[in-house]
Nucleic acid binder design. Structure first.
Lengths: 185, 185
DNA sequence: GGTTGCATGTAAATGGTTACATGATTGT
DNA sequence: ACAATCATGTAACCATTTACATGCAACC
């Protein structure tokens, strides 16, 4: 899934500026699915424009720079449908945290505690945000079945991760400290 | 986390060839943490060798090409420790599947069913593999607390994902089909 | 006075994947 | 006969990130 397709996906829900598309990947509906930076979104949007898959409209705002609002076209919808019918690449997870925790016995207990606590807080924060989205987010007062399904999946996975960290945090730290004492003797 | 650090991590558990390191990221202990291809592993190993962080030893095998087995050095361990003390980058997930399912209403029900079923099977397969690792995997008859913790996290997350897919599969498909009928009228 | 949020963009550097090249063995 | 597993490596290509460039408004 390249950034172009990702942008078409966001724009299929509702028209948006490049800035708003980035937010969709950061805090919005696509947060736990994919990521994209400005450096990839803006060029992608320009290419899509040239291909007739989106159209640009300028909206002047007072006291702010102009917004360039992109809307998906029929050609864009067709391209999105086509991409959705392709076999999906395997999920890719890269977690520095888990890599670090893998070597827990090499780290001071305080660092373990902080890393795990921070991650729990991160998960809980995102879970709350997702919950709010269900009720409050404007663009989809009527979220589609797909949106609800994917959001639910995110909640299930994040919830399980947070619960696991909470339930095993103390055991890990205790074991690491016990091992350290054993080595010291 | 660059591939060099990832390799040091694998080699910190036990010496290995480039080929075996790749397997650690594909099916081994690091499978759900990070990924790396031959095109990045072999060059990384050569650089680490030049930096004195690993040493190479050639093992001739009959009826097979020579194996180049890498072992971590003290300098390598120091480099790994240093990397482990750095603040971890945020986890990155990129899931084509969830992106596709987000637009479930644009897809035929059979495709939804197949995609979800395949993914459930994938999760269940990996869960079984992880379980076997606990009992059978050679290099760590005594897995460290960190290894057990990370493995447990993988099981918790994969289990939650598989359960969610199983429990919501039929509802999603029914909703999408209901919506399709509604449009047809 | 500094940071955060809004808003768009470019260019260089990075980091990694994909494809290619090679070759024997084992299983279907 | 063909695919898969074992085994190493290179080079071209790619996509994306990072850093830079610009600027105003609101908040602390």
């Amino acid at each position: 899934m390249d950034v172009k397709t990702l942008c078409l996906g966001v724009l299929n829900r509702s028209e948006a500026s490049g800035y708003e598309i980035k937010k969709a990947f950061e805090e919005g509906a696509f947060a736990h699915i994919h990521a994209a930076s400005f450096g990839s979104i803006y060029p992608a949007l320009n290419i899509l424009c040239g291909e007739g898959k989106v159209v640009r409209r300028d909206e002047s705002q007072d006291k702010r720079p102009d917004k360039k609002i992109y809307s998906i076209t029929e050609a864009g919808r067709a391209a999105l449908h086509l991409a959705l019918m392709e076999p999906p690449a395997a999920d890719r997870v890269r977690s520095d945290l888990l890599f670090i925790l893998f070597f827990a016995q090499l780290l001071p207990a305080e660092r373990l505690a902080r890393l795990i606590d921070e991650r729990i807080a991160w998960y809980r924060g995102h879970l709350q945000r997702m919950d709010c989205d269900d009720k409050a987010e404007t663009p989809s007062a009527h979220p589609t079945p797909g949106e609800r399904f994917v959001c639910g999946m995110g909640q299930a996975v994040y919830g399980a991760a947070a619960d696991y960290l909470e339930q095993n945090r103390d055991t890990l730290i205790a074991e690491v400290e016990a091992a350290a004492r054993f080595v010291a003797e």
